[in-house]
Amino acid sequence: MTTFKPRWRQIGAALLAVMLLFANQTVWAKPAQMHIMEGFLPLGWAIFWWAVAIPFWVIGFIQIRKILKEKPEQRLMLGMAGGFIFILSALKIPSVTGSSSHPTGTGLGVMLFGPFVVTILGTIALIFQALLLAHGGISTLGANSVSMAIGGPLIAYYLVWLPLKGRVPAWANAFLTAFVADLMTYVITSTQLALAFPNPQTGVLGSWLTFAGIFAVTQLPLAIAEGILIVLIFNFLQNNAETELRELGLESI
């Protein structure tokens, strides 16, 4: 039991460092508004993105119910993946250009359960923020779900996690998956805004470059930080939750 002590001291020191860092700054002072705000999509586009999102919500809902029924011991893992999205999407973190944005945290759930389950977990966080924090909105919930909870996870899962699984070390795959899921969220957000508000001269593409320039660039360092965090957490799981990972088919990657 004495082996606990040095580790707790390290964890304590790390926590203290984080607290000191945050205590000094005004990171909490203003709301993070990386999602499209209420009213900032015309009605037609708002309805369109809701319609795109609904089938994914249905599939995700069915999958979560199946997991809870057939593998009830995965409840903790679901809570872990959901909690990760909750905590990370609440953290407004300054980014290099003098503005700030926040990470999405969807990568972990994508690796553990696939993109459809994350669809539900991410949308829960979005609803909480839209209803209680005036962050995002109900009219834009469809669009914000498509970017953070659906599109980012889908792309990360099918273009990164699955193709690389077993071919590169797990930590490298975890990093890339989280990185891509985070970054794609803001690429999709830029696309949604560009489609709704094309530049009168340069069209959708010109508009897209403007929005992507705003979002994606501030998001880059955060996506890297999020990638590193997920690598550490996934390694923790590999060492402490082997049973659960084996059940999810992730024991030997």
């Binding site: 990171v27 203003k30 300054p94 700030s100």
Partner: peptide, 11 residues
């Protein structure tokens, strides 16, 4: 650190 949304809404 105004939040990228402020920039986006200005745009």
């Amino acid at each position: 650190f105004g939040g990228t949304d402020d920039l986006a809404s200005e745009t």
